[in-house]
Write a protein that binds this DNA or RNA. Structure first.
Lengths: 103, 103
DNA sequence: TTATTTTTGCCAAGTTACGTCAAGACAAGT
DNA sequence: ACTTGTCTTGACGTAACTTGGCAAAAATAA
């Protein structure tokens, strides 16, 4: 991906010169697990993402976007018509937003 | 969604006047499970989707698209910035396709 | 070398998703 | 009303997947 969630938090962490150990402690997991999150071997939980955003002083919405994008990517990357699938979902979401906006 | 996977296969099945029992047998699951798939309570496996496409005489790619879209939708529907997430993934996919196309 | 950080493999525990069973709703026919 | 067939739902056991921790190995620095 252009920038995976793991890449992003690693870049931020390195920019701040924080060891994994410290973030791992904040997330109450051990460093091995934290390491795997950066390497995309494990997935952070949603709550952990917001904690990381705080510690890394970055907009949590941005991190959530990356984190969600990773999940979506995993689902459709292997499909032939990935782009068309995304368009279908986008349409659905727009329609649904219209409905709820009116209601 | 505008048209979920479940809606689609149900419409096709009804158009052909086939009972759930028959498709369930083809998928080697019982009718309760098949029913849940139509109702979006259980998810079909990828192989099952192609089997259904055959039996319902519809392009399997179309069914796979709907099936994938359902999965993606489940992931991001609850997120605030769902559309932006989709855009991020779309970008990533395009970039990746460029790379592989050149290679 | 020594110390620190990062990474990996493996296993136990936890979580999620699946499929079946049993029971019930509903409609059409007798 | 009784049957027959289809569809639906909830509960339950279990299979499959995911997670986190531990221990030990690489990598990196001091």
């Amino acid at each position: 991906m252009s920038k995976t969630f793991g890449n992003k938090i690693r870049a931020l962490r390195e920019g701040k010169q924080i060891p994994q150990r410290q973030l791992a402690a904040a997330l109450e997991i051990d460093t091995a697990t934290y390491c795997k999150i950066e390497k995309r071997d494990r997935r952070a939980k949603r709550e952990q993402v917001t904690v990381l955003a705080d510690l890394l002083e970055v907009d949590s919405k941005e991190l959530i976007r990356l984190w969600s994008a990773d999940k979506v990517y995993d689902i459709i990357a292997e499909e032939e018509e990935a782009t068309q699938i995304l368009n279908m979902v986008a349409e659905t979401i727009l329609k649904y937003q219209d409905k709820t906006a009116k209601a």
